[in-house]
Amino acid sequence: MPKKVSSQWPLSSDEARHSEGKFTMTADNDQRLALVGEGPVLLDLYPDGVAHLRLNRPDAANGLNLDMLEGLQQVLLRVHGDRRVRAVLLTGEGKNFCAGGDVHVFLQQGEALPEYIRIATARLQVVASQLIRLNAPVIAAVHGFAAGGGGLGLVCSADHVVAGESAKFLAGATRVGMVPDAGVSVTLPHLVGFRRAMDILMFNPVIPASDALSMGLISRVVPDDRLADEAMAMARQLAAGATVALAETKRLLWNGLNQSVDGCMPAENHAQAQLAATADALEGLAAVIEKRAPRFTGR
């Protein structure tokens, strides 16, 4: 694992180092059309209408910096406007789906950190809303870690989630003195229940794929070496379905809680920006970089 992964919020170096697996498409690669072929977010379109969106910062565990968030917004806008797209497959390049934000970038902001966090959180919220509101169903395929607003937030905003058996999930925000974002304060309790969500967000356990399945956080678990094929098979099954009916079904289900998701996001953004100015948040970020336990003071 590249050493840079150890700097990814909210993972410790040991957690990132022990992530396993790698998402690799092997079938029909010669048939795909590369719509976005370079940059932090890649987009391929297959003849059957499956759009494959790939997070592409593998050396940074696909941490969501501002460039990647901007790339995600633009790619999702493109997907939304392309009538050829019938289903979306979301994956991460390298050893992790998305292990959170880059704490080095956070700490480099100095006194500008609250403004940086405010902008990053706002962009992430747009991305989460885009995934929820796409007509095409979204399948997230998770290998390695899905952590923080970037990883867990995208998982909670997908319509279906398939994970490799070695995948792990982590909230992580409160352990660096911040709060959940990407609408997780609403979506996670709906997925796993209020009490379990409270435990996940406050105690920050590392959740193995089998537990994530049993609690309802994800849809299914498959062997690591079958993840790419199974995820693509799911996407193709949906792409071959009655797309208008699927889009309306998706809309009806999300509308049951989407009003609350939209309503919570400004509050998440405000809290995140405020917390970025606290000593505890800076201490939490520094502790990750220095590979030690944080010493919070409540300031």
Rank of each mutant, 00 (worst) to 15 (best):
H190G: 04
I200L: 09
A167V: 13
L191F: 11
G177H: 01
G172T: 04
G193V: 12
A167K: 03
M178C: 08
A171F: 04
A173V: 07
M198Y: 15
H190C: 08
S166C: 13
A182G: 10
F194T: 15
A167N: 12
A182I: 05
G177I: 03
S185F: 01
L201W: 10
G183H: 10
F194I: 14
L188E: 01
A173T: 10
L170F: 07
M178W: 03
H190N: 05
F194A: 13
K168Q: 14
L201H: 06
P180Q: 02
E165W: 07
S185A: 07
G177S: 01
R175L: 00
T187H: 04
A171C: 10
G177D: 10
L188C: 02
L170A: 11
S166T: 14
A182L: 05
A182H: 06
P189R: 05
D181R: 04
G183Y: 13
S166R: 04
S166H: 09
K168M: 15
A197N: 07
R196Q: 13
V184W: 04
R175S: 01
A173S: 12
D181F: 04
V184A: 02
L188V: 03
R196D: 09
G172M: 01
L170Y: 07
R196H: 13
F194D: 10
I200H: 04
L191A: 10
M178Q: 08
G193E: 05
V179A: 12
D181L: 01
R196C: 05
T174N: 12
V186H: 04
M198R: 15
T174M: 11
A167R: 12
R195D: 15
P180M: 00
H190V: 06
T187C: 07
G193N: 12
V186W: 02
V186D: 00
K168H: 15
G172P: 10
A182Q: 09
F169C: 02
P180V: 02
V186R: 01
E165G: 07
D181H: 02
M178E: 01
A182Y: 05
F169P: 00
V186T: 05
M198E: 14
K168W: 08
A173C: 11
A167Q: 13
A173Y: 08
V184G: 06
H190D: 06
G172W: 00
P180H: 00
R175G: 02
D199G: 14
A182P: 09
D199S: 10
I200R: 00
I200N: 02
M198F: 14
G193L: 08
T187A: 13
L170H: 11
D181C: 03
L201F: 14
M178H: 11
R195E: 15
K168L: 12
G177T: 07
A171I: 07
P180I: 03
D181I: 05
K168Y: 09
P180A: 01
L170T: 09
I200W: 08
D181G: 07
M198C: 14
D199E: 14
P189S: 12
G177N: 05
R195Q: 15
V186L: 02
T174K: 06
D199K: 11
V179I: 14
G172F: 00
H190R: 09
R195S: 13
